[in-house]
């Protein structure tokens, strides 16, 4: 351990602002990429669910219409 106290660790020999801002910036950037990737995934899942439900509704409606058309002439 190179530092005697938390104070010295935060201070980084007077370069604290430089050292900590570069580390914080790095983690912010990479964290944003990770967040974006998982957000994209959830959007994709939501859209797929919506589209699947829509496709299903269309098929059902079509089938119902055919059934109705079959019954009507009688």
């Amino acid at each position: 351990m190179q530092f005697d106290s938390w104070q010295a660790f935060i201070n980084m020999g007077g370069y604290g602002i430089y050292v900590w801002s570069s580390f914080a910036g790095t983690f912010l950037c990479l964290g944003l990429l990770a967040l974006e990737a998982s957000w994209r995934r959830s959007v994709l899942a939501r859209e797929a669910t919506k589209q699947a439900a829509r496709a299903e509704r269309i098929l059902r409606a079509r089938a119902a219409k055919k059934r109705a058309a079959k019954e009507e002439p009688n």
Partner: peptide, 29 residues
């Protein structure tokens, strides 16, 4: 991160395939 993004891109391109829907847990009847 690259793998996560590649995963998403493949899913986006293949979203209509049954395997993709199955993976997302969508039980398309």
């Amino acid at each position: 991160l690259v793998l996560m993004r590649l995963n998403n891109e493949i899913l986006r391109r293949e979203i209509h395939r049954p395997w993709a829907l199955q993976h997302l847990g969508i039980h398309f009847a």
